[in-house]
Amino acid sequence: MLDGIISGLVSGSTYAILAVCVVVLYRLVGVLNFGQAALGALGAYVCYALVGAEVSLALAVFCGLAVASVTAGFSGWVLARWLGEPSAIARSVGTVVLLILLLTAGFRLFGDSPRAMPSLVPEASFDLGGVRVSLSTVIALLVTIAIAGVLSLLLRYTQLGIRLEAMSERPLTVQLLGVNSRQLAVGVWAATGLLSTLAMLLIAPTRNPTFESMSFLVVPALVAGLLGAFSNVWIAVASGLAIGAVEGAGARIEGLADYRGAIPFAIIIVALIWLRRREVWDAAR
C-alpha cells in the first residue's frame, strides 16, 4: 500500500506541475488551458524523437523544451490576438481547439504507438523505513516543490507578478496604463509550455504513454487546479500529489486497479459537493 503511494508520487508530481501551469495561466491570462499537457507532450516527443535519431540527451531535452515553449508562446499570441476580448467560455473552447490541433499534429508526427522513453534520472533507489523509494520520485517531488515555490514567490513579491495579476483582472485597463499585456501573456504561455514538457519528461519513463494519453494527463491536472478553485497554487500542488498517491495506492488493490484512472472524477465530485455547499453568486451587479 505504502509502496503504491510512494510510486504514485511520480505521476502526482507531473499532475502537480501541470496543475500549477493551469492555475498560473488561468490566474494571469484568464485562460483555462485544456491543451496544457498536449504542449508538454509535444516537447517530450520531440525530445524522444531526437534521442532516437542519435542526438545527445542534453541537446534533445533542450530542443524539446524550446519547441514546446515556442509553440505555447505562439498559441498564447494567437489566443490573445483573436480571443482576447470574448468571454472566458469562448477562450476555453479556444484551448479545446488547440488540443484538437495538437493531437492531430502529434498523431501525424509521432503516430499512436507508445514508445520506450529514456529516463532523465539515473535508475537508483534506496530504503526508507522499509519502503523502497526511487531516486526519480525524490527528484520529481523536489522539482515540483521548487517550481511551485518559485512561481508563488514571483507572483506575490515582484513587480512582474503584480502586473500580471492586474492584467487578468482588467486587461484593457492595464493596457491603457502602458503595459504590453499581449507580450506578457505570450511570456506566461511560453513558460508553462516549458514546465509542462519538464513534467512530461518526469512521468514518461514510468508509463511509456502515447501522444494522446499523454495529452489527456491534463484531466487530473485540471481536477487538481479546480480543487484550488484555479487560484491557489499550493492547494493545486497538494491535490495533484494526492491524486497521484491515491492512484498509486489504487493500483495495488485488487479489483480497483483497472479503474484507477476514474479516481480523479470521483474525487472531484465529492470535493465539489463539499467545497460548494454554500451558495455563492456569480459576477457583480
Binding site: 487546479g225 484512472g261 480523479p264 456569480d282
Partner: peptide
Amino acid sequence: RVRGVELAVVTVGFATA
C-alpha cells in the same frame, strides 16, 4: 453550485473516467 469553465472540467473528468 459549479459554473462556467469549472463545469467544463467536471464534464471532461466524467468523459475520461
